[in-house]
């Protein structure tokens, strides 16, 4: 069996979308100075919420909306504890992951054998007819386009808007931003919720498009990959998209190679996406973490 490069490249975009969505959300959270290690938990909560809502309503679109809401809701738990009760961010994030995985398993119990809801493709008129590029880039469902648009919007927001500047300033030096009268807690709270919604969308993309059914532990570590990609991308949206597509790309490629029956042990193929992503992003990385990343902020000073 040969590998069809066009189908492969199209598959890469699909394979990368969940990670890209979760990572762009986490990027905004970390740029605001909050380290949320609960991405995996928020993703899997989104996955189960999306699946349940899509099944109850019969609409994949409503399912995705439900996933974003579900992800945002669990993230508010984290936000309240970390921002207002000033709990340790690392421990709270890990707890959120454990909590999310358990919650999703509980909520999804009666949905294990359910079939899939079709997510309609939305080829872009005109562009999708271009030879080669059309099938690779422009014959996907709306969420794929949304994920790319979101990266561009986040980049514009961070670099061009005043709100984005304030968010970066809060992540860089929360005390100074507070001294200038910027609402540190509010901005961080909203950023965490945005991160939760994005992770939820990413999770729903796994359960509604990639797999597509409900099984326990469905996200299988994609949230951790998203976290790693944010760091290796030096907190920059442009590099983030490279990292996410690279990871998705090697994942899709190695699955294809496995299918061709090449004489490489499966274990090596399975580790290849992780290794390739780490190598490329380490070679690229030059950036610096936001100055107050992970540090609690006390408004009293």
């Amino acid at each position: 069996m040969d590998i069809n490069p066009i189908l492969l490249l199209a598959a890469i975009m699909v394979a990368s979308t969940p990670i890209l969505l979760a990572a762009i959300g986490e990027l905004v959270v970390e740029r605001a100075g909050v380290l949320n290690l609960g991405v995996e938990g928020m993703m899997i909560t989104g996955a189960v919420c999306g699946f349940i809502v899509a099944h109850s309503t019969g609409s994949a679109t409503v399912g995705f909306i439900g996933a974003a809401v579900g992800g945002a809701l669990v993230s508010t738990l984290f936000a309240v504890m970390v921002i207002f009760l000033m709990t340790n961010q690392v421990a709270t994030g890990l707890a959120l992951t454990l909590f999310g995985v358990g919650l999703a398993a509980l909520m999804g119990q009666s949905y294990v054998a359910e079939g899939q809801i079709i997510v309609p493709k939305a080829p872009i008129p005109g562009l999708s007819e271009i030879p080669v590029l059309g099938p690779i880039l422009f014959r996907h469902d709306l969420v794929v386009y949304l994920s790319v648009a979101l990266v561009v919007l986040v980049w514009l927001f961070l670099t061009r808007s005043r709100a984005g500047l304030i968010l970066r300033a809060i992540g860089e030096n929360a005390e100074a931003a507070h001294a200038l009268g910027h609402p540190v807690r509010l901005v961080r709270f909203l950023a965490v919720m945005f991160g939760g919604a994005c992770a939820g969308l990413g999770g729903a993309y796994v359960s509604l498009v990639r797999v597509p059914q409900w099984i326990d532990n469905i996200t299988a570590g994609a949230g951790w990959i998203a976290l790693a990609i944010v760091v290796f991308a030096s907190w920059r949206p442009g590099r983030l998209i490279i990292g996410a597509y690279l990871f998705g790309g090697v994942t899709a490629l190695q699955l294809n190679i496995q299918a061709t029956g090449l004489a490489i042990p499966v274990e090596y193929l399975s580790m290849s996406p992780y290794i390739a992503t780490i190598i490329v992003l380490v070679a690229l990385s030059a950036g610096r973490a936001p100055g107050s990343l992970g540090k609690p902020f006390h408004a009293s000073s």
Partner: peptide, 11 residues
């Protein structure tokens, strides 16, 4: 004009 904590190094 603050003595400490009011500039953002990376900006």
């Amino acid at each position: 004009v603050f003595q400490h904590f009011s500039l953002f190094d990376a900006l």
